[in-house]
């Protein structure tokens, strides 16, 4: 049995670990609230731009944007993978990467030759690199606040490739925030924009006046629409990250507590045993004299 001192050191070290996980839990809890607010703040823009895009796609414009044209045959595919920069958030990244990997495998089986990957977040980038995927753009170190400015470049790389016909389809994988206890990995088609996304009940067919011309306006609007979708995904992913981390760290703190309790019990038992032994020796010695 381990000596008293060894167990004491062990208890101290687990206590220190618990302090850290407890602190991380509290930090994640406070960041989570902000991340959720940001996620909600991004919704109005997404709703508005979707409504306008729906109006536009219905308005009889002579110009059909490449983002709206469906390709039946998929030969080259793009995938945007949104993960976190840091770990210690449970199975969050693992689950979304598993989903992405499954998609890539399916494509491979269906004869898609090239899969271009855009990575948002360190974890996904590391995984895709190890996997040997063709990473065409990346952004890491987003911090706690998603900024659209940082996403424009990496998203544009894939949008440009799609517009140029180098990609036939673009998917996005991220973790959707359901509630604090539940986050689910999702894989959605980003491009070409599907008709259902642009459905609107209050259908009005506006014949817009375009300034300078319809092509320039539609181009710019749809790029912004796609960016807004990506931004929303990143915001959801960040809210998911913080809640997943909070839950994971709470579990870690609880586990540390259990370990400490067990170790304390062992320590007390050894101490008791040592004392009993000493008394027995003294009594034995006294009897011998």
């Amino acid at each position: 049995m381990a000596s008293g001192k060894e167990i004491r050191t062990k208890i101290l070290s687990v206590q220190n670990t618990r302090k850290i996980t407890k602190a991380m839990e509290m930090v994640a809890a406070s960041k989570m609230r902000k991340a959720q607010e940001r996620m909600k703040a991004a919704r109005p823009y997404g709703d508005k731009i979707r409504r306008i895009a729906a109006n536009l796609s219905r308005a009889n414009s002579e110009y059909k944007h490449p983002f709206l044209v469906k390709n039946d045959k998929v030969a080259n595919a793009g995938l945007i993978v949104i993960t976190t920069d840091k770990g210690l958030c449970g199975g969050l990244n693992t689950n979304v990467l598993r989903l992405a990997l499954g998609r890539i495998k399916d494509w491979d089986a269906a004869g898609v030759k090239n899969v271009s990957v855009g990575c948002v977040g360190n974890k996904g980038l590391g995984f895709m690199q190890r996997l040997g995927a063709n990473v065409v753009s990346k952004v890491t170190g987003l911090g706690d606040t998603p900024h659209l400015e940082k996403l424009i470049g990496p998203v544009k790389v894939l949008l440009d490739a799609f517009s140029a016909g180098e990609l036939d389809v673009v998917f996005i994988a991220y973790t959707r925030f359901v509630n604090t206890m539940k986050q689910e990995p999702v894989l959605e088609q980003l491009l070409p924009l599907s008709g259902e996304q642009l459905q609107d009940e209050q259908a009005h067919s506006w014949d817009y006046l375009y300034e300078p011309d319809s092509k320039a306006v539609v181009d710019e609007l749809l790029v912004r629409y796609v960016e807004a979708l990506v931004y929303q995904s990143v915001a959801e992913n960040m809210a998911s990250e913080q809640s997943a981390r909070m839950v994971a760290m709470k579990a870690a703190s609880d586990n540390a507590g259990t370990v400490i309790k067990d170790l304390q019990l062992i320590y007390n038992k050894t101490r008791q045993a040592a004392i009993t032994k000493e008394i027995a020796e003294i009594v034995g010695g006294a009897a011998a004299v």
């Binding site: 990997l101 495998k105 996997l131 470049g153 990496p154």
Partner: peptide
């Protein structure tokens, strides 16, 4: 911005293996 994102990805990809390693992943 797009070029920057591309360049950084290429730098990161410099060390990649040539084949997709599904099994390992």
């Amino acid at each position: 911005k797009a070029l920057d994102a591309k360049k950084r990805a290429e730098e990161a990809m410099a060390s990649r293996s040539s084949e997709m390693d599904y099994v390992r992943a």
